[in-house]
């Protein structure tokens, strides 16, 4: 398994060219950039809501752990995997946190 690109030293920044809609509790998104539709599901939608402003992975995870019954380590692992997918599809980009 390859090392994740996203780490605690990154800020997660939403791409601007996405149209998002709530459908039955799930988040569906159209990327204007590539013309594709995505379903982020319920938790993915929650993550999307939490990155409205640029934030670190740790901030996203802290918020989710306070709301969902999940261990911090497991949550971070799965959130990073999900964010990597968003990054691959060009739905988000990452910036280095200033030291």
């Amino acid at each position: 398994m390859s090392e994740p690109t996203i780490s605690s030293k990154h800020l997660i920044v939403r791409g601007k060219e996405n149209i998002v809609s709530d459908m039955g509790g799930e988040k569906v998104m159209l990327s204007v950039r590539n013309g594709r539709y995505y379903n982020l599901g319920e938790i993915g939608g929650k993550i999307w809501d939490n990155i409205e402003a640029p934030v670190s992975v740790d901030q996203v995870v802290d918020k989710l752990v306070s709301e969902y019954d999940v261990a911090q380590i497991k949550c971070k692992e799965e959130v990073v995997s999900f964010l990597e997918l968003l990054l691959e599809e060009g739905l988000i980009h990452i910036e280095e946190v200033n030291p």
Binding site: V28, R36, Y37, Y38, N39, L40, G41, E42, I43, G44, I47, L64, E67, Y68, D69, V70, C75, E78, V79, F82, L85, L86, E89
Partner: peptide, 15 residues
């Protein structure tokens, strides 16, 4: 009461 966690997934819709 905390909500049930499910692994987040990204589904690329077939259109």
């Amino acid at each position: 009461m905390k909500k049930v966690w499910q692994k987040p997934t990204l589904e690329v819709l077939n259109i």
